[in-house]
Amino acid sequence: MSAVDVLGGHRLVPVVVLDDPGSADGLGDALVAGGLPIAEVTFRTREAAAVLRRLAARGDLVVGAGTVLTATQVDVAYESGAKFVVSPGLSAAVVRRCQALGLAVIPGASTATEIMAALDLGLDTVKFFPAEASGGLATVKALSAAFPQVRFVPTGGVTAQSAPTYLAHPAVAAVGGSWMVAPDLLAAGKWDEVTARCALPGVTS
């Protein structure tokens, strides 16, 4: 199954940094209530795998692992119930391990060379990262002109205000963002606010 298929039509992907598995249920409830039953749990914290496992066990969320840097982390993500893997850059070892396990993978790419390497690995969807620092939508337009077969998931500096502009471009499959799952909201357990921020006017989730 392709990365776009695994995302299930959701055009917003909450990028979650959470080190408290006990908060996973509240987060999951908030995302589902907000009509955005998907999450990328970044492997930036010690308890990331436990958070991922708890969210995946619910059965009502599409859960992936983010900031995956090694093939070993791919194995951990797979064993924890991840349906997709996201990396900040392009690692052939990570991609091949995902492919061996049947996991959808979205590697980071911000240059033509990286996109060609992704194509060589049989991929057609990349995470455009860091989106804003790499030229934003102007760069996506330039790259998509050269690679019309590639879909992009801009992440990094994308906000609720800029997301609709990215999503209006036909080469953009989805955007990743953290405004709806900001660390201060998660730490304070402000689940109603998380739910409210899941909605983005004019954008189908």
Rank of each mutant, 00 (worst) to 15 (best):
V62T: 15
L167P: 07
I115E: 03
S178A: 12
V13A: 10
V126C: 07
R54M: 02
T67W: 09
K83E: 15
G59W: 10
I38P: 06
G108S: 03
G64R: 11
L167A: 07
A142P: 04
V181E: 09
G189R: 09
L121T: 03
A65Y: 10
W179Q: 08
V95M: 04
V51E: 02
L27Q: 09
A145L: 11
S144M: 02
L36F: 07
A173Q: 09
P170V: 06
G108D: 00
K141L: 06
A109L: 02
Q161S: 13
P183L: 07
P183D: 08
V194D: 05
L137I: 14
V140C: 07
T159N: 01
A93E: 15
G108C: 04
V62F: 00
Q161A: 14
I115P: 00
L143T: 03
E40L: 11
G135R: 01
A133L: 14
P170G: 03
G135E: 05
G59A: 05
V13F: 04
F43S: 09
V63C: 12
F152M: 00
A30W: 07
D124V: 12
G202A: 10
G156M: 09
F128W: 02
P148E: 04
R197M: 02
A112L: 04
E132R: 10
M116K: 13
G89D: 14
L18T: 04
